[in-house]
Design a protein around this nucleic acid. Structure first.
Length: 274
DNA sequence: CCAGTATCCTGCAGGC
DNA sequence: TGCCTGCAGGATACTG
């Protein structure tokens, strides 16, 4: 589930624990994720290294280690990054545990295994097959001047286009639905058919909804949790996602569920227009 | 190149 | 209660 706000929630939490801490041990018996990585490679990279301020690009969490490189983590659909310091037993589906100086353990738990872990040597982000293809981060202040032009070139639905990480990184299914509702744009409308003015508005709504979700600690549907296990509260603010049959908060019409590009899509058939 | 489809994996909710 | 089906925050390797 984790989209930009959930990953940013995790990043902010880690920012209070990681910087300055060094790695005592790495347990990675079975990192069988979408991108397999050898445990001994992670151990060699991390043990003895010292974490710096955590970063993020789109849905990728970037954890730089001083003078060594960067541990890049993608949470996929069901990934959680947990932090504990009381000797807690690792829960099922734990793929990676990083034991830190002073006690805390950072663990990656991911039942569905759609997540990914990568080790980036200095400067290697440009060569990484996934990272190098990402568009600008969805919260990039320059986005409003970049994205509308890109969107106008695409013939696919505006919803699938918003979720294309090569164009803009960080928007997933929940926030694509919510931003389109706010902008009153029909998710199936071809991106290139929408006026520049409305696309401009859409980009503003994208950034606004992401920022508000971060304020609430993200959205928890089922799997997502912060590093301490707490749920994100933005679910309470969702206008359309998961609200099939409920009244549109703006006009009262019944929210409809459909499928676009294989993903559940929620819209108000009355106030969202092509 | 671009657009659309199929697939990876596990857990859970709902229907019968 | 128990089985079966469908569905879930994502990305990418295919096909046409």
């Amino acid at each position: 589930m984790p989209e930009l706000p959930e990953v940013e929630t995790v990043r902010r939490a880690l920012a209070g624990h990681l910087p300055g801490r060094s790695v005592l041990a790495v347990r990675a018996a079975a990192v069988r994720l979408r991108r397999p990585i050898r445990p001994d490679q992670l151990q060699k990279a991390l043990i003895g290294g010292r974490f710096l301020e955590p970063n993020r690009h789109g849905k990728w969490l970037l954890l730089p280690v001083a003078d060594r490189g960067t541990l890049a983590i993608h949470l996929g659909m069901s990934g959680r990054l947990r932090l504990w310091d009381d000797g807690t037993q690792a829960p099922p589906h734990t793929h990676l545990e990083v034991e830190l100086d002073g006690g805390p353990v950072m663990a990656l738990v991911d039942p569905r295994r759609f997540g990914a872990v990568a080790w980036l040597a200095p400067g290697a982000a440009d060569d990484d097959p996934a990272l190098s293809r990402l568009g600008p981060d969805a919260l990039d202040p320059a986005l409003p001047s970049l994205l509308p032009g890109e969107l106008r070139r695409r013939r696919t639905s505006i919803k699938a286009t918003l979720m294309d990480q090569r164009l803009v990184a960080g928007i997933g299914n929940i926030y694509a639905n919510e931003a389109l509702w706010r902008a009153r744009i029909h998710p199936a409308a071809p991106a290139g058919s929408i006026s520049r003015r409305r696309l401009q508005l859409l980009v503003d709504h994208v950034q606004a909804v992401l920022a508000e979700a971060i304020e609430r600690g993200g959205t928890t549907l089922r799997d997502f949790a912060g590093v301490d296990g707490t749920a994100g509260m933005f679910r309470l603010e969702l206008a359309v996602y998961g609200e099939e049959g409920e009244p549109c908060p703006r006009c009262g019409a019944s929210i409809r569920r459909t499928v676009i590009a294989q993903r559940a899509t929620y819209l108000c058939p009355r106030c969202q227009r092509r």
